[in-house]
Amino acid sequence: MAGVRLPIRTHPLQAFVTNHYTRSFRPIVASADMGFYVSQTPRGEMLLGSGIDSQPSYSYRSSYEFLSHCSLPAVTLLPFLRNLTILRQWAGVCDMSVDMSPIMGYTGVDGFLVTTGWGTWGFKGIPAGGEQMAELIAGDRTPELIAPFSLNRFQEDRLMFDPGSTATTH
């Protein structure tokens, strides 16, 4: 416990897969307006997900409410999905920052750095984030690319609007 206060809240994120869909479905379809996304896994299952659960929680609880909430826009946009059955459902937990953007860099505690707040779709931005963090640690200097993501942006009232790294809508 380093005693560093972070603008981070942990929320569950649920997803589910259907049984095998025999035809190939190449695109990843995501609708920010309808609040869901769908893609096909290499095994042919259709993978569906939506936004985070509204309650802050560390629980891996899955819910029927999520299934019905996510299925309605899915079968509206892609009616063929209604013929599939749900195979399994799960939840993970996400670190959500106040401005929905990641936090990278020094914390004020000597030798203790953070890279957090990657939220729901961090896998798109995290390779570059990891590379830049390595450069920071090795070079002892914050690279220009991640300088705006520092923890002290909250003290400086300089919040981020960075849908590029989080793929969130505001």
């Binding site: 603008p7 981070i8 106040v98």
Partner: peptide, 30 residues
């Protein structure tokens, strides 16, 4: 829980004594 809206309650820790620090904590930290 779908019927409810969560309201974050600010809880700045006691060791933060400076007014500005407490304000930042109340505004952003959790």
């Amino acid at each position: 829980v779908e019927e409810w809206m969560y309201g974050e309650v600010p809880d700045p820790p006691d060791y933060l004594t400076e007014a500005d620090e407490r304000d930042v904590d109340r505004g952003f930290m959790m």
